[in-house]
Amino acid sequence: MAHYRAPDPKREQFRRYLEKAGVVDSLTSVLVSLYEQPEKPNNALEFVKQHLNVAGQTSADSDALQQEVIDLRQRCACLVEENKDLKTRLQQYEPEDAATVD
Rank of each mutant, 00 (worst) to 15 (best):
R11Y: 07
V23K: 04
E68M: 13
V69Y: 11
D71L: 15
A60Q: 12
A6C: 04
V32A: 01
Q67Y: 11
A77L: 13
T58V: 06
A99S: 10
P9K: 08
A55F: 03
V48L: 02
S62H: 03
R15L: 07
K87V: 12
L65A: 10
Y35F: 08
C78H: 12
Q37E: 14
V23M: 03
L52D: 00
H3N: 14
R75A: 06
Y93E: 09
E36M: 02
D97P: 05
G22R: 00
I70P: 13
G22M: 01
R73C: 08
L45Q: 15
Y35H: 10
C78I: 09
Y4M: 13
N42K: 15
L27R: 02
P38H: 04
A64R: 12
R89K: 15
T100D: 05
E81L: 13
E82R: 11
R73N: 14
Y35Q: 07
C76P: 03
L86T: 09
N42A: 06
E19H: 03
E39F: 01
A60F: 11
S33N: 06
L34Q: 12
F14Y: 15
Y4W: 14
V32N: 03
Q66M: 13
Q37P: 03
I70V: 14
R75M: 12
C76E: 08
K40F: 05
V23L: 02
C76K: 15
L72Y: 10
K40L: 06
Q57D: 05
R11T: 08
L79T: 11
Q92K: 12
V48G: 02
R5S: 08
P41V: 04
R15Q: 09
E81D: 13
P41N: 06
C78F: 05
A55T: 03
V32T: 05
Y93S: 11
T28E: 01
K49D: 03
V54M: 08
S59L: 13
A60E: 15
S59I: 11
Q92N: 11
E46G: 04
P38A: 10
D97T: 01
S33D: 10
K10G: 15
I70K: 14
V48Y: 01
E82F: 08
T28G: 02
Q74K: 14
F14R: 15
E94G: 02
G22A: 00
P95S: 00
A64F: 09
E94Y: 06
Y17I: 01
K40R: 15
Y35R: 10
Q91C: 07
P41M: 07
N83P: 07
T58K: 04
D63V: 11
D102S: 13
P9I: 11
V69E: 08
E36A: 03
S62F: 13
P9F: 06
T28S: 01
F47K: 00
P38M: 07
Q74N: 09
Q13L: 14
L52T: 01
R5L: 12
A77H: 13
P38D: 13
E36P: 10
A64I: 08
A2D: 15
E46I: 04
D25P: 01
Q91G: 07
L18P: 02
A60L: 15
Q74C: 06
D97K: 03
Q13F: 08
A77G: 11
Y35E: 04
E12I: 12
Y17N: 12
K20L: 07
A98E: 08
L34R: 04
T100W: 05
R89P: 00
D71P: 11
V32D: 04
K49Q: 00
S29N: 12
